[in-house]
């Protein structure tokens, strides 16, 4: 991994509020522990379940959601490539899930103003992983368990055990946004 360990913060999921309070946009993080995989179709079902007053297939309190749809596991492997998908498609579902107790999200790309407000309100954190590095991230996955919606195939909910999953804090509870900060630093005249 090219990210130097000396510059990173090691955290474990599920996350407590104290950990989330220490994180600031732009921080490099190595995350270990349990994360739940859910993308477009799974989000639709999770929020539908909340709307119906049903229990979610896992207790969301303090948990981390990973916006990802893996490639199939080749023989002898637990999973295929595992990079993040574009997060903004989940924006309309996110405030409901944060209200239900989800504390962290992993994806790629920026979030809506409403999601950024919800992150502050519910003391959550949004991380980005490197898009298009699914083979590299594969190495951090130690265990894979199906949780729900297996009929959705690549969009099923999975529970992953990860070790030193490399992330960057994108949105923190203080309103920091790594995309705005980064762009402001490198934008040059005329644009």
């Amino acid at each position: 991994m090219t990210i130097e360990k000396t510059e990173t913060i090691n955290i474990t999921s599920p996350l407590d509020i104290e950990t989330v309070e220490k994180l600031h946009a732009g921080d490099r993080v190595l995350l270990s522990g349990v994360i739940y995989v859910a993308r477009d179709a799974a989000h639709k079902r999770l929020v539908h379940a909340l709307d119906q007053g049903e229990e979610l297939p896992f207790d969301p309190k303090g948990q981390t959601l990973y916006y990802m749809g893996p490639s199939p596991a080749p023989p002898g492997r637990k999973i295929g490539s595992v990079g993040p998908t574009t997060s903004t498609r989940m924006d309309s579902y996110t405030p409901r899930l944060l209200a239900a107790g989800v504390r962290a999200m992993i994806g790629k790309g920026s979030r809506s103003a409403e999601v950024r407000e919800s992150i502050k309100e519910y003391k959550a954190v949004y991380f980005v992983a490197t898009g298009g590095a699914g083979a590299l991230l594969h190495r951090t996955i130690k265990n894979v368990e199906p949780v729900a919606y297996e009929d959705l195939g690549a969009e099923a909910v999975l529970r992953l055990l990860v070790e030193d999953f490399p992330l960057i804090v994108a949105n923190d509870i203080y309103g920091g946004d790594v995309f705005e900060q980064g762009r402001a630093e490198y934008r040059r005249g005329g644009n």
Partner: peptide, 19 residues
């Protein structure tokens, strides 16, 4: 990381990207 990913994908026959 992207260059490392490319080398790994090629060597281990894993997709460069899950998409």
């Amino acid at each position: 990381q992207l260059l490392e990913n490319a080398a790994l994908a090629d060597r281990e026959q894993l997709p460069l990207c899950q998409d």
